[in-house]
Write a protein that binds this DNA or RNA. Structure first.
Lengths: 211, 211
DNA sequence: AAGCCCATGTAATGAGTTACATGATTCG
DNA sequence: CGAATCATGTAACTCATTACATGGGCTT
């Protein structure tokens, strides 16, 4: 079996397994669910559907519509459901890279003006609050649907993450408002985020080690 | 000014601005710092260095070594520091996609066996605990270095995130151990994570809306 | 003797984003 | 009458990963 397909392929397969849908429909649905932790762009959906079809894991039938454009409705095949089950039985890939566009700037904050730093934090807070509100509404909605358990719990994962980060913003705001040292000199060559060599455990070995 | 360069380019520039380093050295350093929220593979570092050099933002000088291979030590130029400052003054790109390789499987958990689900959760807990331990050690270390403030706070962002997620695992474990409904039937076509159309606010509009 | 650390790269591959193209219908 | 929704794609691009290549020195 081919397990070396991207996660996204299986994600599309899994969504179709929940309920048959057109490409457009699936993309919209993904955006309101999986998209919070695994974004799938609309165009990518069409490519994945083509791939899944060539694998024989999904099939489609045309559905004519009156006032709306005709569409193709996709659903999983027996093989597709088997492939999904195999994938689910396999352990998850480690990490998957938490890229955080905010932190990559914040990290270099010593070089920023106070005003720029405040804007950066404000923007981050705003986006986290929007996520929190979205997810809170979603969770409340899903609590009324008995079979939406996994979805509700996934959303809660996002909610708790957002709340923890909002708490972090409060901490940071407080600390940056009351500087313990007169001013951060930005000439110290060791003023950096990094452990001593010996203090590093798993990560470095994973990434730099040969396999 | 060219702001349409990838974040990674600026990340490498920023790291070199903290302290000059060889490519190899920078990659190792990145792995112990930025890598927690913005992974940069070793080979990519060399490519970014080449790009930065062609932009005139960094320069290098050869450093011969006795027992070790000779190396090139890179540092930022005046132009490079200017470009970094401009980038930092610019607002951060929204989101940056939190891809979570665990959640993308968990989301389809209704199709999994109880045992597979337990393994999945155990693996996730293990990796979160490793991250937590790493970051806790890092933070303690950095607390002793006065100028490592931003690094320490960035690490704390990761620590709080990991802790929130560990808490989530406890919640989930408890809920899945005591099923409120006799069994999740996996035939309900609407058993899904998704809000009603009207319940969706910012996200959908951002993603599906024209700009 | 095996394997890791330092050190620098090239080549191939592919996943994912963005721009572009088209067109009917419906809502404010 | 402009904008949004539904609907399906193609084309170009590029970031990022993985595999490959090389080689001396040090440790177990």
């Amino acid at each position: 079996m081919a397990f070396d397909l991207p996660e996204t392929t299986y994600a599309v397969l899994g969504l179709l397994d929940k309920r048959p849908a057109s490409g457009y429909d699936l993309a919209a649905f993904a955006d309101r669910s999986l998209g919070y932790f695994w974004p799938i762009s609309r165009t990518l959906v069409y490519r994945e559907l083509a791939r899944l079809e060539s694998l024989g894991w999904v099939g489609s039938e045309p559905v004519p519509q009156d006032r709306l454009p005709d569409k193709r409705v996709w659903s999983t095949t027996e093989d597709g459901r088997g492939a999904l089950a195999s994938w689910l039985a396999q352990p998850a890939v480690a990490g998957g890279a938490d890229r955080n566009g905010f932190l990559v700037k914040f990290f270099f904050g010593a070089r920023m003006s106070q005003e720029a730093m405040r804007t950066l934090l404000d923007d981050y807070r705003e986006s986290l609050e929007a996520t929190r509100a979205d997810l809170a509404a979603l969770i409340e909605h899903l609590a009324r649907i008995p079979d939406a358990r996994m979805g509700r719990l996934s959303a809660r994962h996002g909610l708790l993450t957002a709340e923890a980060r909002l708490g972090w913003i409060d901490e940071v705001t407080a600390e940056l408002a009351a500087p313990s040292h007169p001013r951060t000199s930005d000439t110290d060559p060791d003023g950096a985020f990094a452990a001593d060599r010996h203090a590093v455990s798993v990560r470095t070995r994973q990434r730099f080690g040969h396999r």
